[in-house]
């Protein structure tokens, strides 16, 4: 947590154990791209890489929030239905028109942040374990989403995402889909927040030792609430991008993103008990995981095989570099 001049970042990336994990995760992604290219020529073409990165960006956005909360030793299990609620709220409040797009975006992102802040408040102020709080919140959001939309039977539920939002995912600027530019901005913003601000330092200290950072004058409750609010914000944002990608919202669209976001964060070398890790690692993890799934699809692997290999690869990566010090 020393000063972060560009030189030291490079230095860290090569010589530090944490930095090496990020490099490993990126290398794993590149190797998988090479395997894909070998199996199906054109896999690693510019178009192929672009489309895989777009899919990875959805996991990457959720993983940004998950990184924040895992850095303080928490976890956010409310991702699936916050994301799903965000997606539905986006189409229902905008009704597919561009004029309403901006208020709808603000409403949806605000909803995500508010739900996340409730998670943080329950954990920090009421002392509820993060697993229980976010698990209950996932149920609460599921019930509200299903109930208020009448099980997706409401008249506006079938609305399409506003054309601007769809364009943000599908259109390209300088040859790169806009959603990837957005992701790049998020990557820079999150890395800046964690690496170069007071708040970032406070996050790492809380993750290392909450009591010591409290004694050192860090307001642990506020840090916790803000981090969970950010997690809710990014879940809602991923929901918006997903309706932009698919055009419409659907029930259950958030389910795959819970485990994928946790896996991405962990593969990227963020320590699950908090205090260590970088968002760049989670980005690498999100990309590697998405390439892995695409490679398995290129092999024409049936569902069950993908599920098994997915688990085995995560285990292999964990055994490679996720092991604890031997204390016993």
């Amino acid at each position: 947590m020393s000063g972060s001049a560009p030189g030291t970042i490079l230095h860290r990336a090569i010589f530090n154990k944490e930095g090496r994990r990020i490099v490993y995760a990126f290398v794993a992604g590149i190797i998988l791209f090479a395997i894909g290219e070998a199996v199906r020529p054109g896999f690693a073409s510019l178009d192929g890489i672009r489309s895989i990165l777009v899919v990875a960006s959805f996991v990457g956005l959720v993983a940004a929030g998950q990184t924040f909360v895992i850095l303080i030793g928490g976890i956010d299990l409310s991702v699936p239905w916050v994301l799903n609620a965000g997606a539905i709220l986006m189409v229902v409040s905008s009704l597919g028109t561009n004029d309403r797009a901006i208020p709808a975006l603000a409403l949806t992102l605000g909803m995500g942040a508010l739900v996340g802040a409730c998670n943080g408040a329950g954990i920090a102020l009421l002392g509820i374990p993060a697993v229980v709080m976010t698990l209950a919140m996932n149920g609460i959001m599921q019930g509200l989403t299903l109930g208020l939309s009448g099980g997706m039977t409401c008249t506006s539920c079938g609305a399409y995402a506003p054309p601007v939002v769809q364009a943000a995912v599908h259109l390209r600027a300088l040859g790169v889909p806009v959603v990837l530019w957005i992701w790049l901005v998020v990557i820079i913003a999150v890395s800046f927040l964690l690496g170069m601000t007071r708040f970032g330092r406070a996050t790492y200290t809380v993750g290392n030792n909450a009591r010591a950072s409290h004694l050192a004058g860090v307001n642990v409750a506020v840090v916790t609430i803000v981090l969970y609010a950010l997690s809710g914000f990014f879940s809602a944002m991923a929901g918006i991008m997903l309706v932009g990608f698919g055009g419409q919202a659907a029930l259950g669209m958030g389910e795959p993103y819970l485990f994928q976001s946790i896996a991405a964060v962990v593969i990227g070398g963020v320590y699950i008990l908090g205090g260590r890790g970088h968002y760049l690692g989670s980005v690498a993890g999100a990309i590697s995981l998405t390439v892995l799934v695409s490679v398995l699809l290129a092999f024409n692997m049936p569902d069950y095989g993908r599920s098994i290999i997915y688990g085995l690869v995560i285990l292999a990566l964990l055994l490679l570099y996720g092991r604890e010090e031997d204390s016993a």
Binding site: I272, G305, I314, L319, G322, E324
Partner: peptide, 20 residues
């Protein structure tokens, strides 16, 4: 293996579901 329980069982969940 000295791995975190939550991660191990996340991975094996996927494996067992696949075999099922």
């Amino acid at each position: 293996g000295r791995l975190q329980p939550i991660l191990v069982t996340l991975a094996t969940l996927s494996i067992y579901q696949g075999i099922a």
